[in-house]
Design a protein around this nucleic acid. Structure first.
Lengths: 208, 208
DNA sequence: GTCCTATACTTGTTTTGTCATATATGGCAA
DNA sequence: TTGCCATATATGACAAAACAAGTATAGGAC
C-alpha cells in the first residue's frame, strides 16, 4: 500500500511516466526512504488506474518511444491526503544481520570480525550517500525552505540518524569481538570493557 | 531466505515443532530481530524438509494433538554455517513513516504533530518491550555469559540503539513542528531552532 | 552488423508477508 | 451446549518484492 501512496504522492506534484517515477523520483530523490523496482512501478500504476486513482495519456515523441504519462485524479488526491494523515502500524522488525549475528557462535572470531567490519563498511557507504543527498537538499532548498522542503529534510535526518546509530553500534560490536568473546582469547583488557557495556558488576567486587 | 536460516538456527540447538518455533522462539526470544507468521513457519519447514535440510518425526501425545518434531540434518547445519559466515547485502531502505512525512505538507500542523506523537508513542512501547527483553537476558545470562549469550546481547543492543535513535529523531521533529513550519505560525523562537538544526546561516547575516 | 547507451513500456515466475480459515485434542466456566 | 483457552497442524488467497526477460525507438562506437 505504501508504494501506491508514494506514487500518488509524486503524481500529486505533476504528471509523470513510469520511467520518470522510477529513475527520477525513486532512484534519485527518495532512495533514503523507499525503493521501487521497475516491475512494481508499472504494475502499481496499472492497479491505480484500474482503481481510478490515476489516469494515463500517451504522448508520441520524436526519436524516442511514446511516453505514457500518468496524472492523479481527485479520488487519488483524496486517498493520498487520507493516508498521509492517519497513523499506521510500525512494521514488525526484521533485521537479517542481527539474525546472522545471533547464530554466529560457531564462527571463529576472525571471521566474525570480518563479517561485522564488512557490514560496517556497507553502512558507511550508505551514510556517505545520505550525506550527498543532504547536501543536494541544502543546495536546492536555499535559505528559505518551504514546508515541503522542511519535511523532506526531516526524512533525510531520520535516515541519517538510523545509519549513524547502526554504525555506532557496529563499532561497539567490533570492540567487543576484538577484546575477545567468552571462550576465546582476549586481545586486551576486554573483560572490563564487556562488563561495562553490559552493566555487569566488576568481577573483583569493586564499586565503581 | 533469512526465515529459513532462522529456523535452521533454532533447530541447530534442538528439535522443535512448528508450534514451538512460532510461539517460543519467534514470539518470545527474538521479536527484536525477526518476526514469523504461523503460515510462514509451516510453509518454510515443508520447504526445508523437501530440500533435506531438516527431517520430521511425529510423536503421539496424551491429551494433546500429535507433535511433529523437526530436526536439522547435516546438510542443514552446513547451510547454516555457510550463511552465518557470509556477508549479505543490506536490504534497500523502506520506511513508510518517512514516506508519509514526505507527503504530509497539506496536513495541518496539529494533525502532523499528532501523527508524529502517535508514532513516537508506539516507538516508546517498542523500546519498553526491548528493555524487558534485555532484563530477561541479564537474568538468564548471569555473571558469565557464554559466547552465544554475548552475541544475543549484541543483537538486543542493536535493536535498542535503533529504537533510541528513532525516538530522538522523532523528538527533534516534534520540536520543529511545535516551533512552526514554513507557512505557519511559529509558536516560539522557532526560526532560530530550525536554522540551527539545518546548519543554515542566521538570517540577519551574523557569523556564528 | 553488433554492442552499448538512453529513453520507454510490459510481463513471467518465485518467494515472502499478511490475513483468513480450517482441523484436532483436551479442560474449564457459564 | 457454547465459548474460551491451550496445545498443535495445515492451507487458501492476495499483494509486495525481487529477479528475469522481453519489446520498441534512436544514436554512436567498434
Amino acid at each position: 500500500m505504501s508504494l501506491e501512496h508514494a506514487i500518488l504522492g509524486f503524481l500529486s506534484t505533476g504528471s509523470y511516466t513510469g520511467y520518470d517515477l522510477k529513475t527520477r523520483h525513486f532512484d534519485t530523490e527518495i532512495p533514503h526512504l523507499w525503493t521501487a523496482d521497475q516491475a512494481q512501478v508499472y504494475r502499481t500504476l496499472d492497479r491505480l488506474e484500474t482503481s481510478r486513482l490515476v489516469t494515463s495519456k500517451i504522448h508520441a515523441q520524436r526519436g524516442r518511444p511514446d511516453r505514457k504519462e500518468y496524472s492523479i485524479t481527485r479520488a487519488g488526491r483524496d486517498s493520498l491526503i487520507e493516508w498521509a494523515g492517519a497513523p499506521h502500524d510500525i512494521p514488525a522488525r526484521r533485521n537479517a544481520f542481527l539474525l546472522q549475528l545471533l547464530f554466529a557462535s560457531d564462527l571463529p572470531n576472525d571471521d566474525l570480525l570480518n563479517l561485522i567490519c564488512t557490514t560496517r563498511a556497507a553502512r558507511q557507504q550508505r551514510l556517505e550517500a545520505l550525506r550527498s543527498r543532504s547536501a543536494a537538499w541544502a543546495r536546492s532548498a536555499g535559505a528559505s525552505p518551504t514546508k515541503s522542503q522542511v519535511l523532506e529534510r526531516m526524512t533525510i535526518d531520520g535516515a541519517l540518524a538510523e545509519e549513524r546509530a547502526a554504525i555506532d553500534w557496529l563499532d561497539d560490536c567490533i570492540d567487543l569481538v576484538r577484546d575477545g568473546l567468552p571462550g576465546s582469547e582476549p586481545v586486551s583488557s576486554g573483560t572490563q570493557a564487556q562488563r561495562q557495556l553490559f552493566g555487569l558488576p566488576q568481577p573483583h567486587g569493586g564499586s565503581s
